[in-house]
Write a protein that binds this DNA or RNA. Structure first.
Lengths: 183, 183
DNA sequence: GTCTATAGATAGATAGAC
DNA sequence: GTCTATCTATCTATAGAC
């Protein structure tokens, strides 16, 4: 049997995945974790405390997921995996919730910065592994671009968005490669 | 004296700007518009109806703001203005709310698509005006990149983010220009 | 047609039982 | 230490007054 705190956090992140930030309520999380809302507040005294716990989990999970992409051997594999990650709407919902919470609460802002920094350093490593020596601006561009693609994908929910995303990433990586050759 | 519906919509968008999606409630909007919440529901019977109204306003406003950038004569001016737009957190808050609402409600999704399509077509025009013949993928890239930069900027709220954003955009436009020369 | 009192539901937090 | 009944605040929606 898992630790109860852990069960609650799992339930909390599942709630965020399904219902997003506005649907993230203590009663809902409590129901999913199979305990009363008033019991939940014993483990997490305030909504913010719960949010911090779930944010910690989400940041670690996101960075771990990215790490597995960093070690892929080819550009094609990297593009495929980033595209897949961008298409995971539940994942985007969690990250958007984090972004909003960071906008409202300073304690979550530092956590979001940790996530952003972690992503950027992993992307730097990724480009190095692929022997694409990108500038710092290009690394930051890939980060922001991925965020934007995920958000637009979530909000528009178009039929062939996967192809679109892939095409955009391919054109970007092609540019990086050609620039590399010129050096 | 303005039409009351208009007053309400202005109040609603101001609420969204300040408090974001989760703080967007009928009582708050009503208070700002100086009428009772129960009166507000006379003009907008449901929360969704109010959201649709405010989304319509936000989409039009956003496209108009972008239109004024489209006609700028130089790359430098364009970059400066896009950077400024990305740095307007209240603006980003509204757009993020729209994105979330679009994720939840199909009726708002079509409105968000209208926004996305409008932005892309204006960006296409913008590149043309600057004599940068970007591919379709590059146009979509600029869109998604801008979205991502705005979201990350809002959530991290770093001291020198403006410089960062500017540097990223400059490096991107430099790439576009150099590619153009090669043709 | 314009407006309000009020109902009904749900949120978050606390005092206190065991 | 673990858990729950309960309070207060706040939200959305409706029935009905003017």
């Amino acid at each position: 049997m898992q630790d109860r705190r852990e069960i609650i956090l799992k339930a909390a992140i599942a709630t965020l995945r399904e219902h997003g930030f506005s649907g993230f309520t203590q009663p809902r999380v409590a129901k999913r974790a199979d305990l009363r809302q008033s019991h939940l507040t014993y483990y997490f005294p305030t909504r913010l405390a719960l949010l911090e716990g779930v944010a910690r989990l989400a940041v670690d999970g996101q960075l771990a997921a990215l790490q597995s992409i960093v070690d892929l051997p080819t550009v094609a594999a990297v593009i495929k995996n980033i595209t897949a990650m961008i298409g995971r709407h539940e994942n985007t919902r969690v990250l958007m919730a984090l972004a909003q919470a960071a906008d409202e609460e300073p304690s979550l802002r530092s956590l979001f910065r940790e996530l952003a920094d972690g992503i950027v350093s992993r992307l730097r490593q990724l480009l190095e592994n692929l022997h694409l020596n990108g500038t710092e601006e290009q690394v930051l561009l890939i980060h922001a671009l991925s965020v934007g693609l995920a958000v637009v994908d979530l909000a528009t929910q178009r039929p062939h968005s996967k192809r679109r995303v892939e095409a955009i990433l391919e054109s970007l990586f092609a540019t990086l490669a050609s620039k590399d050759k010129k050096q």
